[in-house]
Computed example of a mutant assay.
Amino acid sequence: MASLPPLPSPSFEELVTEGDAVPTEGWDFSWFEGRATEARPSWGYARGMAERLGRASVALDIQTGGGEVLASAPRFPAVTVATEGWPPNVARATALLRPRGALVVASPEDAPLPFGDAVFDLVTSRHPVRAHWSEIARVLTPGGTYFAQHIGPSSVFELIEHFTGPLPEETRSGRHPDRERAEAEAAGLAVVDLRAERLRMEFYDIAAVVHFLKKVVWMVPGFTVDAYMPQLRSLHEQIESEGPFVAHSTRHLFELRRRDGR
């Protein structure tokens, strides 16, 4: 029996429409399977977070997204709270975490944390938009721990600058771990551990690029398909002719402790 001819590859327009239609709520990245890859840091943030949650009494997860990373921990402290600022994510995180006994508080990412002083013995965060060091130090108990994975400098800039053009050095060097370390220490936090890694990413089609830029909104602020159609088309043609588009993410791991007598 004759074999069937292969199905035609999706067109540029079809791929862009597909990527544009994928829901962006939460931090579930399973849709990217087979369409994009990103190497993971060697330290295993979720595992380290779970270990510390297992030892904590009162914990706070800042900018929890849809709560997926926090929910991966097998055990929560007796009191577990999470904050999130984007309403769709607040609803998603509440549905996921409330059955586990965690409280989700709607709180804008740039607002002061809506808690008293010295409440939490553990504060965690994965990829906060910005770390508000004075607030983190304020809500930690003396000797309490901040454990987080941050986005580092020039992360995925190969992709970002395809859409924005070259960015100034000040922008490229933002989020540098040395700068964040100095800010944390000035707020009364002592560094227990700080590690940084640069990690390979690959995008296999333009649908993955569209969804990534819509989901991670700070990469190209104001990104829409219509506004960046020429850049999308040129990148699609590059992927079609040369293979996956390669970029590099940067990550750093912080473990900090609030000094007594802050």
Rank of each mutant, 00 (worst) to 15 (best):
M219R: 02
T164G: 05
V69P: 07
R100K: 08
E161C: 02
E240N: 03
W133S: 11
T250C: 04
E109T: 09
P6L: 05
F29K: 09
T37H: 12
F32E: 06
F203A: 06
G243I: 08
G44V: 13
F212W: 14
A93P: 04
L4E: 12
A111Y: 08
S249A: 13
P177Q: 00
S249L: 04
I136E: 03
L103V: 12
P221A: 04
E170D: 11
P142I: 02
S9A: 15
P230M: 03
V191C: 01
L97V: 08
V217D: 01
V104L: 10
L103R: 12
A247K: 05
A46R: 15
V104C: 10
A91R: 15
V22Q: 14
M1F: 13
P6V: 02
A93M: 05
R98S: 14
L60A: 04
M229K: 13
W86L: 03
I136F: 00
R198M: 12
E18N: 11
L53D: 06
T164D: 07
R47C: 09
L199P: 07
Y146Q: 03
S30M: 10
V210E: 04
R200T: 14
I62G: 03
R200I: 09
E170S: 14
S3L: 13
L122V: 06
T37N: 09
V105S: 02
A39Y: 07
P6T: 06
F32W: 13
L122C: 06
A111D: 12
G174R: 14
D226W: 04
V58S: 03
F203P: 01
T94I: 07
G67D: 11
Y204G: 09
A50P: 04
E255G: 00
H176E: 01
E197L: 14
D193I: 09
E33L: 10
E240H: 04
T64N: 08
R98T: 13
T145G: 00
R200N: 06
L253A: 09
A190S: 13
F12H: 09
R257L: 02
E180F: 00
I151T: 14
R262S: 15
S241M: 05
H127E: 04
P41N: 13
R35W: 05
E68M: 01
I239G: 03
T24C: 09
L232A: 07
T64F: 00
W27T: 13
T17W: 07
E13A: 15
T37E: 12
S173V: 12
F147L: 15
A93L: 03
E255S: 06
L103C: 05
S9N: 09
G19V: 12
P10I: 06
T24V: 15
I136H: 01
H162L: 10
G65P: 01
F29P: 01
K215Q: 11
P244N: 05
S42V: 13
V16C: 14
G48E: 15
V123F: 08
